[in-house]
Design a protein around this nucleic acid. Sequence first.
DNA 1: CCGTTGATGTCAGTCACTGTCATACGTGGA
DNA 2: TCCACGTATGACAGTGACTGACATCAACGG
Lengths: 204, 204
Amino acid sequence: MGRWEPDARGRMIRAAMDLFAERGFEQTTAGDIAESAGVTERTFFRHFADKREVLFDGSATLERTTHDAILAAPDEMSPLEAALTGIVAGGGLLEQRREHAVRRSRIVAAHPSLQERELLKLAAMTESTAKALHERGVAEPAASLAAHSAVTVFHVAFARWIAAQDDDAAQSDDAAHGEERDTEAPPSFVDCVADTAAALRALT
Amino acid sequence: MGRWEPDARGRMIRAAMDLFAERGFEQTTAGDIAESAGVTERTFFRHFADKREVLFDGSATLERTTHDAILAAPDEMSPLEAALTGIVAGGGLLEQRREHAVRRSRIVAAHPSLQERELLKLAAMTESTAKALHERGVAEPAASLAAHSAVTVFHVAFARWIAAQDDDAAQSDDAAHGEERDTEAPPSFVDCVADTAAALRALT
DNA sequence: CCGTTGATGTCAGTCACTGTCATACGTGGA
DNA sequence: TCCACGTATGACAGTGACTGACATCAACGG
């Protein structure tokens, strides 16, 4: 429950994204973010374990959502199918905040230490997925392998989804300049997951 | 070429592993490592980009080895088969220094920031594997997916291989205490890869 | 014997992050 | 109405990771 100015956490997250986008991650100090959000540096570190973590606030929710969706999946589904169901559910969260996801992805792509943290979150998602599969009665190493495969699909599908958003933006620019082009809507995340999963199955 | 006492780099790596194993990663400062290796802290950071990197000196070699092995694989092989061939070649490097690999793995497992770095190295290996597959004429997204799958096999197989080394050590202890037990040799890394790859294929 | 090159030592400085204590806010009870 | 109490914050000092600039020293070529 916040007293003082409400939503200090949200203000810090927004300030951080703005500053990282403008000047870059390294050129922004924790003090800069705090000042821009109207708090002190100490308060920043009370809310976030480190400077990078301010960009990963939604990851726990994403993890919980996928975990729950896997447990809710029909019993007849194979381990991989169930895991992919969880991935699709998680993808729904991203589609709800497309703009935020795209902006955030650009920031993360710009600095290795942020990619490192992103990989750690994906690894946590893999763990949580494997755990959910265990609860469905899947044994090792099938559970771990299905979890890794599903998160791979998430990872690759996300990259393609982001790229499509950028393409779409460029296409809109072109259209604004009067060029002829078939203006398809950009693919939904679910479409990307379906395509990627199909390509994975075609691999063997 | 080093003048002064030779192999400063190697001395720092050994000192770091010893200290990390004794006191833990956080309780060891970069200055401690440098002093223990007979150099200054500044020299440590000239050799390693950061404190964690001292544990990842072999990763470039591992990456190059797998990349080259993939290019050298027979043309008839499927993308995934070729990628797995690279993984097996990389595994050879680990078997050559089993003791070192086991010790290092224990240290990395003990601290999240080291796991983060390990994941970044695995991601680099994935990139490099995908690039090698591109050079073999594999298109996207098949190349990325095969690369991710192969690295997943590496990851899971490595974990099982390490666990088996530990089991084997425990078993030797038991044997020394006079218990009856069939004393099988611990599985080779290649065995682990074969098992894990089979389990992956069985997933669909 | 001297100049060059590359690895190292020295030192000052920034910034991420932490521990500690004081303080202000809002809540529930006397 | 006022007073304890828990919680979020401010203030401040301190450690350690990492960097930049400059001096130094060992081998090597000429």
